[in-house]
Amino acid sequence: MGIIGSSIKPFKNTAFQAGKDFYDVTEADIAGKWAVFFFYPADFTFVCPTELEDLADQYATLQGMGVEVFGVSTDTHFCHKAWHDTSEKIAKCTYAFLGDQNHDLSNNFGVLRDGVGLADRATFVVDPDGVIQVMEITPEGVGRNAAELVRKIKAAKYWREHPGQVCPAKWEEGAETLAPSLDLVGKL
């Protein structure tokens, strides 16, 4: 797909966030910050609330890491509020939900399903320069794991802050990293 390493495109979407008035979010609002765009097909569905609740369980950790989180579907911000007010699982979510009824954000990230009008189940991690560093797309029936998302963000942040080092499979914060070199070729 060629999206890793690309910059996010300009956008303006209205957000619902518990305890706040509706507000607009643009690419300028995330400049200089890490951000997660957590796309899901639709409000009032089945797998989506389980994923969003799981993400809510990791939200304090992500905030502590300086990461902004945005749940995104092609529903309106009004629909997001209604879902928050009626679903026990979604009521736990205190991060922002972006309405994308015009499909601008879903198209910008390349996750709008042709002819359906819904976003794929997709996650994007954007670095402080607005560059997409991590992406995950799963089929509609397969939910994501927010703890694994946290691990990937920690690895992406480490990699950004430690040039010349890479994080191997299952890397956890504090574990050894690798320094790619000719000496490692064929020895791993």
Rank of each mutant, 00 (worst) to 15 (best):
G5T: 08
S7M: 15
S7T: 14
P10D: 14
F11S: 10
F11K: 08
F11P: 04
K12A: 15
Q17A: 05
Q17V: 11
G19N: 06
K20F: 07
D21R: 00
V25T: 09
V25S: 06
E27V: 06
A28E: 15
A28L: 13
I30P: 12
G32W: 04
F39P: 05
F39S: 00
P41S: 01
P49V: 01
E51Q: 02
E53L: 11
E53Q: 06
L55H: 01
L55F: 07
D57H: 11
D57V: 09
Y59N: 14
L62Q: 05
L62A: 10
M65W: 09
G66N: 10
G66I: 10
V69H: 02
V69R: 03
D75Q: 08
H77A: 14
H77M: 12
C79Y: 05
T86N: 15
S87I: 03
S87G: 00
S87Y: 02
E88V: 07
I90A: 03
A91V: 12
C93L: 08
Y95W: 05
G99M: 10
D100H: 02
N102K: 14
H103R: 10
H103L: 14
L105E: 11
S106R: 05
N108D: 15
G115K: 13
G117C: 09
L118C: 09
D120W: 09
R121A: 09
T123H: 01
T123F: 06
V125Q: 03
P128E: 11
G130S: 12
I132R: 02
M135A: 11
M135P: 00
E136I: 00
T138W: 01
T138V: 15
T138N: 15
E140F: 10
G141Y: 08
G143S: 13
R144H: 06
A146G: 11
V150L: 04
R151S: 02
K152Q: 10
K154C: 14
A155M: 10
P163C: 02
Q165A: 13
P168W: 05
E172I: 08
G174P: 02
A175Y: 03
A179Y: 00
L182D: 10
G186C: 00
